[in-house]
Amino acid sequence: MSEYTESIREIAKRLLETCSVEMIIGFRKGTVPMMNEPHVIRNARDTGDLVWDSNCGINLANYLTDRKENIGILAKGCDSRNIVTHILENKIKREQLVIIGVPCKGMIDKRKITRMFNGEILEVLEDNGQILIRGNGFDTRLDKADVLQENCALCTHRNPVIYDELAAELVGEQEDIDRYEDVRKLEAMTTEEKWAYFDDLLKECIRCYACKNACPLCYCPTCFVDESKPQWVGKSQDAIDIRTFHFLRAFHCAGRCTDCGACQRACPVGINMRVFTKKLEKDCLDLFDWEAGMSLESRPPLDVYRPDDPDKFIK
């Protein structure tokens, strides 16, 4: 995907030079392997700083909330769906945006790759669907398909759903993907097994809130975990408080989550909190035939009433 970089720089330069936007939100090259940094460019002469490769996993919709400027923003499939949600929820206006669509072939999983090697990884490059990894005592090639982020491997919306410019030709969408194997496995567990599973899942959580802060849906001015009048949840490392935080956060994403993977990617201790949100995502699909952020025309399931609602209590 690194060949996208040139085209992105050109589009960004043109948009800034013609004053179509005041700023471009994209990525600049990271300072450690497999990381890029979200970055803002305000001047056409700086567009050479922009890069695109398989390490642009941060969801850029996060950086749009309540901004007043006219903005050019790079958008992968998931970013674009979250931009749609941002527009629907009045966190940004469509007219402010020039969306530069970036058809996505998936982001690589930094943590998975790190765990594959004993020594430290010093450099990661990509070449035509292959990932070249050089480190202390190894120099190897992997198929990118084998080291994709979990959510990218299961992604069925790689192309942006909304865009004004395109950085490359649209890519083919993955077909015959079973998105919910993990959720079904959990659903099949007994109540006690489920409880134990989540206990183990969350035991490393340090409550840094990287998951909620990396999430483009978590934009409340005061999060319920911070609220003190009344205080909803204790602030210590108590296991019940930690669980309360995670599952309430997931609820707040119901019908809005695009499984962009930002939460899991951000977590410093490697918790896959997507198992909370994916259940809700699956339920929304099963019950309401709903996938978040696919169109500016339809309202999310939690703010409409339909006479054919599948739940019987509502009738």
Binding site: L186, E187, T191, E193, K194, A196, Y197, F198, F313, I314
Partner: peptide, 16 residues
Amino acid sequence: MEHMGIEPGRIQFSWI
């Protein structure tokens, strides 16, 4: 709630 290990039936909804 049930998904994360609470016994079924503790949460019920109704429209009245």
